[in-house]
């Protein structure tokens, strides 16, 4: 198992968001977390990524508590949350260069081809703040094309993307899963018609 959640519980204020959530993510699997607004989907992803401590329960990466193997885990994890992590003052290329470099990956030439793949041709040298929300989202998602990490945790990756963008992302998911990667995501999209199997975890809104 790549990633396991054991009896996870999250509490916001005095309200229990969810409890006793178990999740086993193996390589080659895509997990979709579903549920209404406020059910704790983002919180679950953040707990799995180690950004939020769980009220109860453990998250295990290859059988080891993630806080115990933090560096090894983050070496193998790519998390894209609500906020993209793209610096608005920097261009697409500068942003991607940073995220590539911290993964130990240097672009020998500017990654024009990569940007073309995610539909950002001609926008390479414009600060991200002058791009639309969808285009900024594409910059963040472009990390998926060079990332060597096996586990991807993506919070609403399809938000702000147009039809082409969504299709392109599906293709990329398929390749990643075929290579033995794993994906955990939240989305209101119906992924059942995809060519890869989708595992679903349903969170219910609790009062």
């Amino acid at each position: 198992m790549l990633l396991q959640g054991r009896e996870l519980q999250s509490v916001r204020g005095e309200r229990v968001l969810f409890s006793n959530i178990n999740l086993d993510v193996a390589s080659g699997q895509l997990w979709q977390i579903e549920g209404p607004n406020g059910a704790g989907k983002s919180s679950l992803l953040r707990i799995l990524a180690g950004l939020l401590p769980a009220q109860q329960g453990d998250v295990l990466f290859q059988g080891e508590e993630i806080q115990q193997c933090r560096e090894r885990y983050y070496h193998d994890l790519l998390f894209i949350g609500h906020k993209s992590g793209i610096k608005p003052e920097l261009t697409a290329i500068e942003n991607l260069e940073f995220y590539a470099a911290v993964e130990g990956h240097e672009f020998s030439t500017p990654p024009y081809e990569l940007l073309a793949q995610v539909g950002l041709v001609g926008l390479e040298d414009i600060p991200a703040q002058r791009l639309s929300a969808g285009q900024q989202r594409r910059i963040a998602l472009a990390r998926l094309w060079f990332s060597q990490t096996r586990l991807w945790i993506l919070d609403e990756p399809f938000t702000a993307l147009d039809v082409d963008g969504i299709a392109m992302l599906h293709d990329r998911f398929q390749v990643h899963l075929a290579q033995g990667g794993a994906i955990i995501l939240t989305s209101h999209q119906d992924l059942q018609s995809m060519s890869y199997p989708v595992n679903r975890l349903q969170l219910r809104y609790q009062h």
Binding site: S27, E71, D76, L90, R150, G180
Partner: peptide
Amino acid sequence: MSKPTPNTRKPVASGQIFRQIIRRDLRVA
């Protein structure tokens, strides 16, 4: 289902990440 193998990719040196953060932040500034 195949058992996951340890990631063979080399870990990135801490100094490298340290330098990259400084470089990016100076650029932003």
